Simulated assay, not measured.
Amino acid sequence: MNTRIFLQISPERRGIILYTSVTVTGIRGLPLIQKGDDLPRLIIDKCALEDGDIICVASTIISKAKGYSRHLKDIVPGDRAMRIANSTDEDPRFIQVVLDQACDILIETPFTLTEVPCGHVGVRSGVDASNVEDGLIITLPPDPMYEAEEIRRELKTLTRKDCGVIVTDTCGRSFRRGQIGHAIGWSGMSAIRDFRGDSDLFGKTLEITEEAVVDEIAGFANLIMGESNNGVPVVLFRGIPEWSGHDALYFSPEEDIIRKALKKV
């Protein structure tokens, strides 16, 4: 049985209906994903889509279906991986995969903080050894934006419905305990809802307010997906109003003051 949560939200942007109902449904019953599985077809076998729906898909099952994985037994760690693993008390072969996936290393220890080519910054390059067979390591899709677009396109071909797709991954946060869902790829919507130029309650013009809507949706999706053995890698959102904005979710290196500070450490 699928899990459903009903919400009432009050969007404040002009041109949007004042009250609307949002339904959040965890899609259960999907099989354990194997390389070569057709994710869009498996999804529509478990739910009926409507125009405007947003589908959140855990990056792990995309990586499994596409074969983005490595076997520990095939990995030979280099000197840097050995040095980091000695400090973090981790398997140096695992750390080697982390380094292989990264395009930039921001911190080596006490945990390895990296940037991957798609722009996402996270701990250990998003490399995951949970919910997979022993000895197998799952890596993030190398191009999550393409994966989101591909799933969206195939869902539309199969159903004739125009849906948005968000690829999610779980990440920790600075200054807070616990992991939450983040969007690492999206299609069919803008990442950022841009309030700049709007007025606040007192008529003041907003100059810097930008809302990372895809991350907010991904965070709620992760609540439904769970972090252990829930078996809910896909979540359906229905009734979220459209928004306008842009896709510059990641700061450029020139804008990112935190990155600059870490580089000086």
Rank of each mutant, 00 (worst) to 15 (best):
S174R: 00
G135I: 15
V97A: 07
A129W: 14
T112E: 05
M145F: 06
D100Q: 04
T157V: 14
G119S: 06
D162V: 15
R173W: 13
P142W: 02
A183T: 03
I105W: 05
L140D: 03
P142C: 03
P144D: 00
D91W: 11
E149G: 02
F111T: 11
Q96A: 08
G178N: 01
I151Y: 10
D100K: 03
N131I: 11
R93K: 10
I95D: 02
C103F: 06
F94S: 01
Q179S: 01
V165Y: 06
D169A: 11
E133C: 06
R160M: 04
L113C: 05
C103H: 00
E108F: 11
P141A: 00
G122S: 08
I105R: 05
G126L: 01
I180D: 03
E150Q: 11
G181I: 12
L155N: 04
E90D: 08
C171G: 13
R160T: 08
R93E: 02
G178H: 05
F94Q: 06
Y146L: 06
L136H: 11
L140H: 04
V98N: 05
D134V: 11
R152S: 06
I107N: 02
P110N: 07
V98Y: 09
G181D: 06
L113E: 00
G172Y: 15
D143V: 14
A148F: 08
E108N: 11
I95C: 04
E108P: 09
R152H: 11
Q101A: 09
T159P: 13
R160K: 08
N131L: 14
V132C: 11
F94A: 03
D143I: 13
P92V: 01
R176M: 06
L113T: 00
Q179N: 10
A129C: 14
A129D: 14
E90R: 12
I107S: 01
C163M: 04
C171S: 12
I137A: 08
L113N: 03
E108K: 11
D134L: 15
E90S: 09
G181S: 08
E154L: 11
D169Q: 11
E133V: 09
E133K: 10
T159Y: 14
